[in-house]
Simulated assay, not measured.
Amino acid sequence: MTVIRPRHASTLIILRREGETTRVLMGERHGRHAFMPNVTVFPGGAVDPVDHRLSCAFDLPGDSVERLLDRPRGCTARGLALAAIRETFEETGLRIAHRTGRSLRSRNRDWAEFNEGGFEPAVDRLAFVARAITPPGPKRRYDTRFFATTIDAIAGDPDDFSRASGELGDLSWIDVDDVLSRDIRPVTQRGLRFALKWLNMPDPERPERPIPFTYMRNGKRVLDKV
């Protein structure tokens, strides 16, 4: 059997806390997608080479950089985080950004559109919370990094999805208790649980938190740490 090498991917879990309720932004993948059609997911997708080349004024927290660079095989920590921001913008129309007025000088259409009005990706507002590699077998495999952030990292109206590409349908802020009770992919539930742990940790403890790493070995799921 041909072994499919997983492609690097990133996903972003955006949390919205209002009083005693915490919600998360999710949507349903289109039925025409070859990978996980009609599945409710967080925004995200494959890393593009342009994500590694883009220059911006902000960077990830140091603890995230060190953990992301654990066996990355040809990718950069910032590129992984930028992919999560770019894919979120494409799929939802929402910018995780600082308005600096600076030009990104990118020929990439998606990043050029993101930058309209002087917005730069707020990489510094992302936390690396989990990693998972899809099992061998499918035609497509992904080595996915899960990032988390909060609603205040969004530049603009968090309920305005008018610029969304349509890749994700039924975009909405869903109560996390509802998400955890749904019949959705286990890796999605685990990613959300890890993001909630990060959200509820005191700031001084966050750099020391373990980062779960899920993958398959000899047909069994392994939960490691990075």
Rank of each mutant, 00 (worst) to 15 (best):
E18F: 10
F147S: 10
T40D: 06
F119L: 14
F147D: 09
D143I: 00
L171Q: 03
L126A: 12
G93W: 08
G62C: 05
R95G: 10
T214V: 12
E205Q: 15
S55W: 04
F89T: 04
R141M: 03
L82Y: 09
F42S: 01
R221H: 03
D183R: 12
I151F: 01
P202F: 07
M201V: 09
K225Y: 15
A195M: 09
T2F: 12
H33K: 12
P37I: 11
F58C: 01
A34V: 14
A81G: 02
L60H: 13
F128C: 12
S64H: 13
L126H: 11
D143T: 02
T22M: 08
P61S: 10
A153G: 05
D63Q: 04
L180P: 01
L68K: 09
D157E: 03
E91L: 07
D178W: 00
A164G: 12
P135N: 05
P72V: 00
S10C: 02
T88F: 08
E120I: 04
G156P: 10
I4F: 05
D124F: 10
P212C: 06
N200A: 12
A81Q: 04
R99S: 12
A46L: 08
L104P: 00
R5H: 10
A81E: 02
V3Y: 13
S103V: 06
M36F: 10
R16T: 02
V41R: 13
F42P: 02
P6S: 04
F119H: 15
I13F: 03
T92Q: 10
V226I: 15
D152H: 03
D51N: 11
S181A: 15
T214Q: 08
G191A: 10
L94M: 07
E66F: 00
R221I: 10
P43F: 05
N115A: 15
D159K: 07
K220S: 13
A148T: 15
T21A: 14
D203V: 13
P204R: 08
S64Q: 06
A46V: 08
P49L: 05
L25P: 00
R182V: 12
E28G: 13
T134C: 08
C75F: 01
D70F: 06
A9K: 00
E208K: 11
D224A: 14
P121V: 14
D152C: 07
L69T: 06
R78P: 06
Y215P: 04
F128V: 09
L126P: 11
M216V: 15
A148I: 14
P49T: 01
D124E: 14
G27K: 06
R71V: 11
R145I: 06
I133M: 13
P202W: 09
F114Q: 14
F35Y: 15
I13E: 01
I96F: 05
R105G: 04
I211Q: 05
R141D: 00
G62S: 09
K197S: 11
V176W: 00
T149V: 06
T40V: 10
T188I: 14
S106Q: 02
E28D: 15
D177N: 10
L80T: 04
L199D: 07
K220M: 08
S10Q: 03
F35T: 12
L80S: 09
P138A: 02
G19T: 13
W198S: 14
D183Y: 07
P207Q: 06
K139G: 14
T100C: 07
R29G: 02
S106G: 00
R78V: 03
L94G: 00
I4R: 07
T22L: 06
E90A: 11
T11W: 01
I211N: 04
